[in-house]
Amino acid sequence: MIRLYNYHLDENGFRVRLLLSMLGLSFETVAVDKAPGREQEKPPMLALNPTGTLPILEDGDVRLFGTAAILAYLVRAHAPDSPWLTADAADFGRVQQWLGFSTRELKPAVDAREAALFTSEGASDSDLKAARKAFRIMNDHMTLRQIEGLDWFVGNTPTLADLALLPSFALSRDCGIDHDEYPALRRWLRRFRTLPGFITMPGVPDYH
């Protein structure tokens, strides 16, 4: 049985739960008190993941931390021939590029949302600015894709690139970043929501 150490309001946990759902995999969750307890940074959890982050995935003998690694592992292990992680070298590279973007350029968006939800200070101006810049890069990319009649970040099908990028945009209103400046991302989000197995979380409306 796949086991996910997870905090339900955690954006990165949502990334993994979304993929598990879209792959149709059953799993159990272990609830970790990230807010306010910061349990993932304390010794019992540090034994599982020394970096003190969530989520953590266990699947048989395999234990992984780092969201992008977990996503890539799940596809390779449980849906190896699926288009989520294409075999084509160029598109594989492009998916990795956006996976990297999701953990690097979108980190300010993740941090801004957490600060807005769980701290009294709220999101920092520098994180909000960096988050907007990241969304703008994504919107510029999808504007060009759409003029070519292409619906997804890479290739002709949804890939891990779309799945890893989408939660930050879907949840951006949690830290006050509206969707109005990103029309190409609005259309992309609506399309992704219609895919089989899509799930929501608090902050992503069930109705749309």
Binding site: D178, A184, R186
Partner: peptide, 16 residues
């Protein structure tokens, strides 16, 4: 206020 193509049928968007 928007490009026509960006407001698909059955959808809404906020703007300033």
């Amino acid at each position: 206020v928007a490009l026509s193509a960006d407001i698909e049928a059955g959808t809404s968007a906020g703007t300033l």
